[in-house]
Design a protein around this nucleic acid. Structure first.
Length: 431
RNA sequence: GGGCCCGUAGUGUAGCCUGGAUAAACACGUCGCCCUGUCACGGCGAAGAGCGCCGGUUCAAAUCCGGUCGGGCCCGCCA
């Protein structure tokens, strides 16, 4: 007999079926017994009022093979249920469950630490698992969108000889008799591949940051959705593309992940335009509207939150691009603006958090060399990167989206670790 | 790297400030018995922690103090 997935049971009314799954609930009312069975596709109630071999051995989290008849039943949770006729036990749990993963999360009231310590088990919880179902959707759509726009998917090395900026936030790895590092960004490689004639490339890959911090929005290993495109006029072309992507993404999520969004109580906005506020104007807005005058060249998390609030009030969107960041807080490859204090670098903030960084890059060899020196680096270290710039590099730019951050903000999660299957942070190396 | 907070049965909490009376209470889970339409099933009963760890103060410490380990949040920095 062939296995039927639980979501397809309604096609088998009054027929004998075989299902596989986990037992998630047991309710015994004397001789009448109910079992909630779950497989990857859904849940179904099984019922039995006879003495059947193995039936009383079942515990929660047992793995079973169940034969039975599908029947309509108004009293069943989903309108149908399965009359259990035969039970085969494939595996029984060997220990008490640390928590009742099959219950409603709000009843469990578990600490994130617990969920992460028992990650595979906590992922069995539908609501938690759904974070990764929707994340897979986000990545799928990213790929689909990139392909539609004629980008080539590439995979760049994760073991590299030097970082894209300094070297302070890199993980060292032993590479035979040399020191190598884990890539903190595919930056150099994606630019080189633009110059390699591909023009448009994108990558979905882990990047590594050895930053010694412990916050709800940082991971030491995170999934970066990168893209780099040649023959642009300026950074606005890159932002235009991202807006198009986000519209496409939200439309898809609203359609395919309705249930998940509802479960998380999310109403995804209809994106029209995303305002682009130059850095210095942003600072002025903060001063005028919120009476916040924070010194410094960068935006603090509080300022980022306020700018999003401003954007929501004024433009009706949770998104806002902050453009023309001061040059000296952006990496050396960022194209300076007409006013050289500023750059053609931008961030995209969403619901108060930075989810993207991008810019137009410097494509002129001499200018790039100048910039490397201006930032105090040794051009010798970047020889492999600079090479292609000697042979006709087109004007180009690109960006990187933090996949976990985007997931986190879409679902309004509190901690970015919730959006990572097996997060690597300052203290967590297992599971 | 800086600041603040937390650590009690399998899980989530109460107790701690204002030390003591039966060496710890409640809920969920677990185990046993009962229950033929449950769906956070219900009823009755039971087991399960000596309060992260080490040390100190005290006649007396889960409660006060010090250290240590583990965890959380914020900031710097970043996606």
């Amino acid at each position: 007999m062939k296995r039927v997935l639980i979501r397809d049971l309604n096609k088998y009314l009054n027929k004998q079926v075989l299902i596989y799954g986990w037992v998630e609930g047991i309710r015994k009312l004397g001789k009448l017994k109910f079992f909630i069975i779950r497989d990857r596709s859904g849940q179904i109630q099984g019922v039995c009022d006879k003495e059947i071999e193995n039936l009383d051995k079942l515990e929660k989290a047992s793995v079973v093979k169940i034969f039975g008849k599908v029947k309509e039943e108004t009293q069943a949770p989903k309108g149908i249920e399965i009359l259990i006729e035969k039970v085969e036990i494939l595996n029984l749990p060997k220990a008490t469950l640390p928590f009742e993963y099959y219950r409603d999360l709000s009843l469990l009231n578990l600490k994130l630490d617990m969920l992460l310590d028992y990650r595979p088990l906590s992922l069995r919880n539908k609501k938690i698992g759904n974070i990764f179902r929707i994340q897979a959707g986000i990545i799928k759509i990213y790929r689909e969108f990139m392909e539609k726009n004629d980008f080539l998917e590439v995979h760049t090395p994760k073991i590299v000889s030097s970082g894209t900026e300094g070297g302070s936030q890199l993980f060292k790895v032993e590479y035979f008799d040399r020191v190598a590092y884990l890539a903190q960004s595919p930056q150099f490689y994606k630019q080189m591949l633009v110059g390699a004639g591909f023009e448009r490339v994108y990558e979905v890959g882990f990047v590594y940051r050895a930053e010694d911090h412990e916050t709800s929005r940082h991971l030491n290993e995170y999934l970066s959705l990168d893209l780099e495109m040649g023959f642009i006029e300026d950074e606005n072309d890159v932002m235009d593309l991202e807006v198009k992507f986000l519209k496409y993404l939200f439309r898809y999520l609203r359609k395919k992940y309705q249930e998940v969004l509802k479960e998380y109580n999310i109403e995804l906005e209809e994106i029209r335009e995303i305002p682009r506020i130059p850095f210095y104007e942003g600072k002025e807005i903060l001063k005028k509207e919120y009476n916040k005058e924070i010194l410094g060249d960068d935006l603090t998390p509080e300022e980022e939150r306020l700018l999003c609030e401003y954007s929501l009030n004024k433009y009706g969107t949770n998104f806002v691009f902050v453009t023309k960041f001061p040059r000296n807080i952006r990496p050396f490859y960022t194209m300076p603006d007409n006013n050289p204090t500023y750059s053609r670098g931008f961030d995209l903030l969403y619901k108060g958090m930075e989810v993207t960084t991008g810019s137009q890059r410097i494509h002129d060899y001499d200018m790039l060399l100048e910039s490397i020196k201006y930032f105090g680096y040794n051009p010798e270290n970047f020889k492999f990167y600079l090479e292609i710039f000697k042979y006709g590099m087109p004007p180009h730019g690109g960006l990187a989206i933090g996949a976990e951050r985007l997931t986190c903000q879409i679902l309004n999660l509190k901690n970015i670790r919730e959006a990572s299957l097996f997060p690597r942070d300052r203290y967590r190396l297992v599971p």
